[in-house]
Design a protein around this nucleic acid. Structure first.
Length: 579
RNA sequence: GCGCCCGUAGCUCAGUGGAUAGAGCAACCGCCUUCUAAGCGGUAGGUCAAAUGUUCGAAUCAUUUCGGGCGCGCCA
């Protein structure tokens, strides 16, 4: 069922097309037509800039656009009235009966309300977190983790088939260092004095893992063949850390459909396939890069390397695929991994990356353009850092000194809901302060609580009415409750009916914070209306003497709960009927 | 030096071409015999970092400047 916003949109587009056809308008960009349903300053239920745009495009200056437009809009059966303001905006009020039909539709759809099929079942791969398995998940990863999870949910709501994927970098020098760090901890358990190098991992978690090896194998590894021992310690460490990482992410209810291991990418020789593709397109060559302009370029000396001609595509310079010792660079393996994803027939890839990887985007997009011939086959969503504030102090951390804060620690202090909510409640490319004291407060300062409280209040009314024998099971008299609805309630209903649009925007732009803002807006309207019932008894939800009036309120309270549940589920936070 | 992101009320943030730029917190003044006061109403607070340009119209687009963050061959 099309709602009033769809119908108006169709109307304006058709009006523009007809106008062009009949030589009333010159060319017309339909994308510039906006239908505004949220502006506070609006006069009607919805407003549009259509007249402002159309008047510029008019060819015959004698054509009375204003009059004709108003008359046409008024003919639409869902329009109550329409006027054009002195500023040129079209303000439209919608027939209340029509709105109530929409509400009925919402209640019939229940938790499917707002879902769409714009994705048409296309396969999207969302890769996120992908933290190196060299330690536990830290706060540095938590924003990307929640963002990736919520964007995945948004895409699912829009009809895409989503795979949540984690890329495990279990090869390379960092993992070698991890293995040697673990071995030293193992030796330490047998009383040997150890000395960790600067770049080795000092975290205590490795001691725990070393103890497990000791329990399993005793001193078997103390004087063992080096090669096999190194291999064993590396894979043992990675396996355990991946387990820890999974467990940590499960605290936030984040689960992946697939883990892909760098070693498997290597094993399957995908990199050779990649090189073939690059070679065929003449984008692979041996050459020397220019000296970088950075501060620490002192030790630089020219070297011939295998290079990817990314500068011909999106990048500012070409990029190295091979190290001087013959190993592939991280980029080479990562590029091969992305070819692997392409071969798995995804229609689109989305990567969620932290701000420190922004410089990496052009080269990776260059690879995927080469592979897929599409500019936007790979889309990268970036998120800026989160600064932790506690007791008005900025919590500083440094990985080198080992004093990083783990996700588990933050989780223990604030819990899942505030953590998830706050991670997506601001635009991801804005850096954010996360105040540990504030997010656990239970008052208006805390929007998570504020929204959950609105939900609980609505539930309490519904339950109380139910106990009095008033409910809306098999309610049919939608055409009779119009007269009970006040202006405030119409405003809430209009807002609820705009949910499919908010969802669509949020999903298309990969901006979950639009949903949290939306929820807070409705919560404000709701709490405000609630309090009016304190001053004015006729505005209360429940009137035992007037069943139909009470039902008219229950209708939109149920709608509100449905919309809240949908948003809560997408963001991944809980909701309760009592608090 | 170069590239990317950001700069909106005292603080935390919405708003990316439209109407008088909005919320919450903090400040001040009010509202509980009441369906949850864990709430609500009101007052005050802004040269949207600055300048120039594009246009009927700019916080939004372009250029420049200033300020903050991130990154800049063989780390991942």
């Amino acid at each position: 069922m099309n709602n009033h916003l769809d119908l108006l949109n169709d109307f304006f587009n058709q009006y523009a097309l007809d106008g062009i056809k009949h030589n009333i308008f010159s060319n017309f960009d339909s994308n510039s037509i906006s239908i505004d349903f949220s502006s506070k300053s609006r006069q009607g239920d919805v407003s549009s800039n259509f007249y402002l745009i159309a008047i510029k495009k008019i060819i015959n200056k004698n054509f009375n656009l204003k009059e004709k437009l108003i008359s046409e809009i008024n003919k639409l059966d869902f329009v109550e009235n329409c006027e054009i303001s002195k500023h040129g905006f079209i303000n439209i009020n919608i027939e209340k009966k029509f709105l109530l039909e929409q509400v009925k539709f919402l209640l019939d759809k229940k938790n499917n309300y707002g879902k769409s099929n714009v994705g048409k079942g296309k396969k999207i791969n969302v890769e996120f977190v992908s933290a190196n398995p060299t330690g536990p998940i830290t706060v540095a990863h938590m924003r990307g983790a929640v963002l990736g999870d919520v964007i995945s949910s948004l895409l699912t709501e829009s009809g895409f088939e989503v795979t949540r994927e984690y890329y495990v970098n279990n090869a390379g020098s960092q993992i070698n260092i991890l293995g040697s760090s673990l071995y030293k901890r193992y030796l330490e358990l047998y009383g040997e004095k150890i000395d960790l190098n600067k770049d080795e991992y000092p975290g205590e978690y490795l001691i725990e893992i070393a103890k497990i090896i000791k329990n399993n194998d005793g001193e078997k590894w103390k004087n063992f063949n080096t090669n096999e021992r190194e291999k064993y310690f590396k894979s043992f460490a990675v396996n355990y850390l991946i387990k820890f990482i999974k467990k940590d992410l499960e605290l936030l209810n984040i689960n992946f459909d697939k883990f892909t291991f760098e070693t498997d990418i290597e094993k399957n020789n995908i990199i050779n396939e990649l090189f073939k593709i690059l070679n065929n397109k003449h984008l692979l060559y041996k050459g020397t890069l220019e000296k970088p302009k950075g501060d620490d370029a002192d030790e630089w000396e020219p070297r011939e390397q295998l290079l990817f001609k990314s500068s011909e595509i999106f990048d500012s310079q070409d990029r190295a695929l091979q190290k001087s010792n013959g190993e592939w660079t991280y980029f080479a393996n990562d590029a091969a991994y992305h070819l692997d994803k392409f071969k798995r027939n995804f229609d689109k890839l989305i990567n969620i990356w932290g701000a420190d990887h922004i410089g990496y985007i052009p080269r990776m997009k260059s690879i995927l353009k080469t592979i897929s011939n599409s500019d936007d086959y790979l889309e990268v969503v970036t998120c800026q850092i989160v600064r932790l504030i506690k007791d008005n102090q900025l919590l500083k951390m440094s990985k080198r000194e080992g004093n990083f804060i783990t996700l588990q620690e933050v989780y223990d202090q604030v819990g899942k809901d505030p953590l998830r909510y706050f991670m997506v409640s601001t635009k991801s490319e804005t850096s954010m302060d996360f105040n540990l004291n504030k997010v656990i407060e239970k008052n208006k300062d805390n929007p998570v609580f504020y929204c959950q409280y609105a939900y609980a209040r609505a539930s309490s009314v519904i339950n109380k009415a139910n106990n009095l024998g008033i409910n809306i099971n098999s309610f049919k008299q939608y055409n009779k409750i119009n007269k009970f609805l006040t202006k405030d309630e119409i405003e809430i209903i209009l807002k609820l009916l705009s949910y499919p649009y908010i969802l669509k925007q949020s999903s298309n732009l990969r901006e979950p914070h639009r949903l949290t803002n939306y929820l807070e807006d409705i919560s404000t309207l709701f709490h405000s209306f609630w309090n009016k019932g304190k001053e004015n008894e006729s505005l209360r939800f429940i009137d035992e003497t007037d069943k139909l009036k009470t039902q008219s309120k229950l209708i939109w309270l149920h709608s509100m709960r449905t919309v809240f549940e949908n948003v809560f589920k997408i963001i991944g936070i809980d909701f309760h009927e009592t608090m």
